[in-house]
Amino acid sequence: MAATLTKDEALFQFLLRMGDNTLILGHRVSEWCGHAPVLEEDIALANTALDLIGQTQMWLGLAAEVQGDEKSADDLAFLRDVWDFRNVLLVEVPNEDFGRTLMRQFLFDAWHSIQLGHLMTSSDDRIAAIAAKASKEVAYHLERSADTVVGLGDGTAESHGFMQAALDYLWPYVGEMFSSDDVDAAMVKAGIAPDPASLRADFDALVGRVLADATLNIPESTFAHKGGRTGAMHTEHLGHLLTHMQWLQRAYPGANW
């Protein structure tokens, strides 16, 4: 792969990784609409999903531009199959319950905020501009998800139990956010994006602090599922998500909506 990867191909893959993360997580969060535990959470979840879908329009819009096949962000979102998606596995796992949803959001927000901080100084002005806009939204997402994780972790014995179970389930999906490959090496070389592995120390410090306040224990295992950001092996869940999300575009090809 390394020998044949041009800079634009690597950039395209990188942009898909950013845009597919926000697309798939935005979709998952939007599944909550009207079913949240309290009205304020309905509003916050819809707001988070809305921000993530807005960021998707920017990332996938730029990806389509880089690809140069006269494709649009919508073509990329609605007409690719599972193997072409480049999101980390963490964002495609089902919502399950409010605890898992918020824990997943917090783990992603922590990585996302650090990543966007670096991307704001990207050598590619278009990426720096998207990161500058998105980072303001993500700072709020992180504040809210961290506060909620602390509130529920350090709440009742029952809420603590839900949050510890969520952390135990999700922790094996954390490591993939920090794995590196040829695409990342090309991005580092071009000064476009940081090496994912280099974000881990900041992530561990931030997550360690919040989870300690939440009285939750980080699992000892460092095992990491992977395959999402390379497309090598997604979970079974992504296909079902796409079945929903892409249905109208697939059933009525060529229509304008």
Binding site: G34, H35, A36, P37, V38, E41, D97, F98, G99, T148, V150, G151, L152, D154, G155, T156, E158, S159, H160, F162
Partner: peptide, 17 residues
């Protein structure tokens, strides 16, 4: 269902506050 499933969340956040 949303109200019932969310009981532990509301209780947890209240207890933390």
């Amino acid at each position: 269902k949303a109200w019932k499933d969310g009981q532990w969340v509301r209780d947890g956040l209240l207890a933390h506050a």
